[in-house]
Design a protein around this nucleic acid. Structure first.
Lengths: 342, 342
DNA sequence: GTGAAAGCGCTAACAC
DNA sequence: GTGTTAGCGCTTTCAC
């Protein structure tokens, strides 16, 4: 072990017989400092093995150059993809991401949010859990004036900007497309109605049915969670309730996978006896049999826009305003739920 | 907007007419402070809406309670799963993770490592890119005495602890199992030979063949990357080289997917004409047709062990020693590459 | 059991 | 162009 002494600005300053401040400025390429001095400083820093201390820098400059990210889970195509984009967008703007995972649990979400506030992140990027109802922490964030952007799963009415897929219209258009191609009997494994995506996708679904004078028997709308297991249970509930629909529209892709599993067990053939459409797809979908027709949710665009919006709010605090970006979706037809007329 | 003033220890101290130090101690539940005072302090902190400033705390205590994580990518089952476990393990130990993604690019890896050092993380958890050869940054880390644990993709000979799957023996055992069941003609889409996983999996493969007096024609070992695209190109190269083997063993799961795609295009039926086995699986595998037989890589165990090892090194600096944990694997038979004898 | 003094490493404001 | 002074919010001695 060689000298473990940590090199600071002071060491460089002493080595060069100039002041700490000049070194600090030189390293940050401040116009105050002459070219020759800068060169010298940089050389010495390199030689001494100087590594800047961001903690100290952040404390004195009162900004951390970090963004706090809270997601419900990571091993899910939409989030994995959005997260990657968020990382790259932040990185390109010289911001670091501190990501936390709530695992769909409100307790974790709350702790993470508090930690992130304590870490003095410059802004927050959040997609809430499927359970989030207590919004007091978000009110605290608002009061403290910390920029926050919700993406995909949002809490409405708090005055924060949001970036979402066009859940209602996207669903409406897709269902209409399928109706026009000949299907009439639809069921929906819906998300919890207190979540924006659950509610909006359900609305799109109901409106499309209504506008075509199609009835949906109540047992055919099952309110559930967003995971594979929820799809499994949801299908079983539908199945036991008697007659099956032609098409099951699921609130997420994992839910659709759960339906496939359950249907296999129940001896229902897909796409022979039953069709599936999901909101959201997966990179693995083309390897899945039957591949699931889905409403394409632009995860990368959502991640990118949300980060850019947040960065903008961080950098221009004076012109902060509530904005709502809605990203268009489109129906992608795969094995499951081919159009009847085609 | 109400008062945006940030509450600090000082405010609580003044409110209570005691000193900052006592407040600080009370909040940290220091034994110095009496129960009644603690109660009062906590109450006041709550009432005033105090949020501790970790930046300041870290600066003065010289530890950040954070771990820096560098992974090559995130949308890949092994990493998504390992990352989730790493997060939870760290979280349970009251550590935060600062994750960065190198996208398999050494330049990014270097920048991220420097940033992490500047952020004064207490330790580093790293899985290197498929290209990493320059190890000087890791020597710097060593010199500065910062604990580092490599997982899955490691750099050897630097004195750092590592946690990996049992790449060589696991491969050896799996291939032997397949040979014993009747297969004799194997090809391998191997990882780059300068990576530990590429090298070790190849060794396991070659040894299994050699110990059974089986020859592998040179065109049947193709050195390539770890992604789907590499599998596609790798298969095409094999395909064009003439005769096909019975079984292709791929260095990763995504590479196997690439092979499936390429084989479909080439009109080769799987598992009819060609078998596949991959090192590593996917949660989606059971939905994939044909589902790929794979050597199960315990991603959660690897993530957990690596984090625990690092935490141990952080907490007990005096008894730090190089350790190498190797997690056992096992062959999981799916559609592709069923055992012949069965 | 409590507090005063000192300092973590850096940057901002202002002087020279 | 360069340096001085002060302070970010907290924790760490160490004295009382």
């Amino acid at each position: 072990m060689t000298s473990k002494k940590v090199i600071t600005l002071k060491d460089i300053a002493e080595d060069l017989n100039i002041s700490k401040v000049s070194v600090s400025k030189a390293l940050r390429d401040h116009p105050d400092i002459g070219a020759e001095t800068k060169r010298l400083v940089r050389e010495t820093a390199e030689r001494l093995g100087y590594v800047p201390n961001y903690i100290a820098r952040n404390l004195s400059s009162r900004q951390s150059k970090t963004i706090g990210l809270v997601v419900p889970k990571i091993a899910h195509h939409f989030f994995a993809s959005a997260i990657e984009t968020i990382y790259h967008t932040a990185f390109d703007n010289k911001y670091e991401i501190i990501m936390t995972v709530s695992q769909e649990k409100v307790e974790n979400e709350l702790i993470h949010l508090q930690t992130l506030l304590s870490m003095r992140v410059d802004g927050l990027l959040i997609s809430v859990t499927e359970q989030t109802k207590d919004i007091s922490i978000f009110e605290t964030v608002k009061k403290r004036g910390i920029p926050l952007v919700f993406f995909d799963r949002v809490v409405e009415g708090l005055g924060f900007s949001t970036v979402t897929a066009d859940d209602e219209q996207g669903t409406y258009d897709a269902i209409i497309e399928l109706i026009n191609s000949g299907y009439t009997k639809f069921a929906h494994l819906a998300g919890y109605s207190y979540t924006n995506i659950g509610k909006n996708r359900l609305n799109g679904f109901r409106n499309a049915m209504k506008d075509n004078n199609l009835k949906v028997p109540e047992p055919w709308v099952v309110e559930t969670g967003f995971a594979e297991g929820d799809g499994y249970k949801g299908f079983m509930k539908l199945f036991r309730s008697g007659e099956l629909p032609e098409v099951i529209f699921t609130v997420t892709y994992p839910v659709a996978l759960g339906v496939i599993l359950a249907a296999q067990e129940a001896g229902i053939s897909i796409p022979g006896d039953l069709q599936i459409v999901s909101f959201g797809g997966s990179i693995y979908n083309r390897f899945v049999t039957p591949s699931i027709s889905y409403i394409d949710q632009p995860s990368e665009e959502i991640g990118k826009k949300a980060t850019e919006l947040l960065l903008d709010e961080i950098k221009n605090p004076e012109m902060r305003e509530e904005r709502h970006i809605v990203a268009p979706t489109k129906l992608v037809i795969c094995d499951t739920c081919k159009k009847k007329e085609e």
